[in-house]
Computed example of a mutant assay.
Amino acid sequence: MEPAADGPLKGKVVVVDPGHNTHNNEHAAEINRQVDIGTGRKECDTTGTETNSGYAEATFSLDVAHRLRAVLQSRGARVVLTHDGDRPYGPCVTERADIGNKAHGDAAVSIHADGSDVGHRGFHVILPAAVHAGRADTSAIVGPSKELGARIAGNFVRVTGSAPSNYIGGGTGLDTRSDLGGLNLSTIPKVFIECGNMRDPQDAALLTDAAWREKAAQGIADGITDFLRG
């Protein structure tokens, strides 16, 4: 699908990063390889989590990414996916950041779902911490990424009706981390969103529902649109 010729996001580039990959579990050696994220070394990628019924986070994230791409393109944006389920594994977290940087994205979002304890519910948006180590330097993106995250969180509540996380972020729906290569190595405004907790039955019922995933994509898209339009 080509982006619309006109729309509120005409001329904007949005990078959408579907978390994990459904084939990661078949490539343990490759994804366990350590990569430099500036503040230390971590695995190239991970398998992600799944619901108790076996619905994989990687499947969820790619589905929401496709829905998000459609909404953003309808508003005139050019959308770059870090992968489209077409790779044997990964990409590594370092490459995910590099793809966004090389695309000169105006904003980037990495889509995930959490794997926490039963009773832990709700979404949270992860913001980049101030990091200056190795080839990581987030000084230019901390401010705009915080604004992007706040816009996404607000719209996610409005559109999905989901509450901010009751176990991370103190009720704000926002969390700041320095241990994620996808954020540390980004030179463009970027956040992660954990759309819910796959291991909680109530959240899992939402995450496995196609109509709810469409709302999730709409909420994320509205937040990105608010951010890019100022």
Rank of each mutant, 00 (worst) to 15 (best):
R121G: 04
D17I: 05
S53M: 04
A216V: 04
G100H: 08
G169V: 07
V125T: 13
A140H: 13
T176L: 04
E43V: 09
F123Q: 08
R135E: 12
D203Y: 05
G134H: 08
T22E: 15
S61R: 02
A210K: 14
Y89D: 06
L68D: 07
V35Q: 09
N155Y: 07
A205T: 12
A150W: 01
A153N: 06
I188V: 15
P3K: 02
A70D: 15
L207T: 00
T208R: 03
A163D: 11
D106N: 11
T176A: 05
G161L: 10
G173Q: 08
V131R: 05
V118Q: 12
H27V: 06
G115F: 06
A107T: 00
C195S: 15
D179R: 14
G161E: 04
F227I: 03
A56N: 01
R199S: 10
T82H: 02
M1Q: 11
D6T: 15
L183D: 02
S145P: 05
K215I: 06
L207W: 00
D226Q: 12
P88A: 12
V125M: 10
L228P: 00
D6L: 13
A56K: 00
G54V: 01
A108V: 07
V64A: 04
H20Y: 02
T172P: 08
G11L: 09
T160G: 06
Y55V: 00
T39D: 09
D106K: 03
V109L: 07
V64P: 01
I224S: 07
T225G: 11
A107I: 02
L183Q: 09
D222H: 12
E2A: 15
R69Q: 15
D200V: 03
D98M: 13
I111M: 07
V157D: 10
D200C: 08
A211G: 14
L185M: 13
V159N: 07
A4W: 08
E57W: 00
V64Q: 03
L72E: 04
S165M: 09
